[in-house]
């Protein structure tokens, strides 16, 4: 991947005396998807606000595509797309009008709103007012709006939160398509499965600090454990659970015992989830 799209250099922000982001440093390569994870109040939104020019850092720098954001806000903002967690569309305007407005704000020439709406599955409803859209449709329109300028960096904040599986899958596919196009994606989410599935790397943020940043597989290997989980039938016919740790010297012997001495009904391997790792690192869950 090589060249850096995003560099956070000792990025700091505080509200009055509350330190929201504490000298964080990280970088995201061009074309990479970074999953940015953390509980509410961890400092994720403040970080995104500094990266997108909505807040000026109290200390440190945010550099996007080689430009210091604080000094080149308009130039940086012309190269990024932002999809917010809460729907903030013009409700009394149609989808077409919403997209055309932003195309003009981004000074996009020959913009085709219809094809973008078709891409997010909103064909046939282009001229309906947004106030008549379902939550899933609005969210898809939010994603479409963030793509109007074909941004080089895409900031997505909980893009699939509260959506049905079909809408979620549609949005995940768009994220992957955008990555294929060459866009860098900064994905803020609570959904560990989604982060695991989509992200090249994930960052865990808590209390204003980045506690871990690596590929999901590396984090699992570093912090998690692999196990086999089996259901066995007891002599009385009831089902009982067995768990065998895969990373100990006794693994082979335990496995042999399991199959020789017990009646195995089901068996599957289980690796640590990002959520397990997050709890291990921070001592708290994402929703706390």
């Amino acid at each position: 991947m090589g060249e850096e799209a995003i560099i956070a250099d000792r990025l700091t922000y505080f509200y009055n005396n509350l330190l929201a982001v504490d000298h964080i440093c990280f970088h995201v390569a061009k074309g990479e998807i970074l999953g940015f994870l953390g509980p509410n109040g961890a400092g994720k939104t403040t970080t995104v606000k500094m990266l997108t020019g909505q807040l000026k850092p109290k200390d440190g720098k945010a550099i996007l595509l080689g430009l210091d954001v604080a000094e080149n806000i308009e130039r940086v903002q012309s190269k990024i797309g932002v999809c917010f967690e809460e729907t903030n569309l013009y409700q009394r305007m149609s989808a077409i009008e919403n997209l055309n407005l932003f195309a003009r704000l981004f000074n996009v020439k020959s913009f085709n709103a219809y094809s973008l709406l078709a891409r997010v599955g909103l064909s046939g409803r282009e001229k309906d007012r947004v106030e008549n859209y379902s939550k899933g449709m609005r969210q898809r329109l939010m994603v479409a709006r963030s793509l109007v300028s074909k941004p080089q960096i895409l900031f997505l904040d909980e893009p699939t939160a509260g959506l049905d599986p079909t809408s979620s899958e549609a949005i995940r596919n768009i994220i992957l398509e955008e990555r294929k196009r060459g866009a860098t994606i900064f994905l803020t989410t609570h959904d560990m499965m989604e982060a695991d599935k989509l992200s090249d790397r994930v960052a865990f943020m808590n209390q204003g600090k980045i506690l871990a940043l690596d590929k999901p597989l590396n984090l699992k290997q570093k912090y998690g454990k692999r196990a086999l989980k089996a259901k066995v039938a007891s002599k009385k016919g009831a089902l009982e659970s067995r768990e065998i740790d895969l990373d100990t010297p006794q693994t082979a012997e335990e496995l042999q015992n399991l199959f020789q001495n017990e009646k195995v009904v089901t068996i599957h391997s289980e690796e640590a989830t990002l959520e397990d790792i997050f709890i291990k690192i921070t001592g708290r869950g994402l929703t706390e």
């Binding site: 020019g53 308009e74 903002q77 917010f84 903030n88 569309l89 013009y90 704000l105 709006r145």
Partner: peptide, 14 residues
């Protein structure tokens, strides 16, 4: 209230 202002403020518009 509807936060559309934030959507505007992340565009190149000054």
């Amino acid at each position: 209230e509807q936060d559309t202002i934030r959507a505007l403020l992340v565009t190149p518009m000054s």
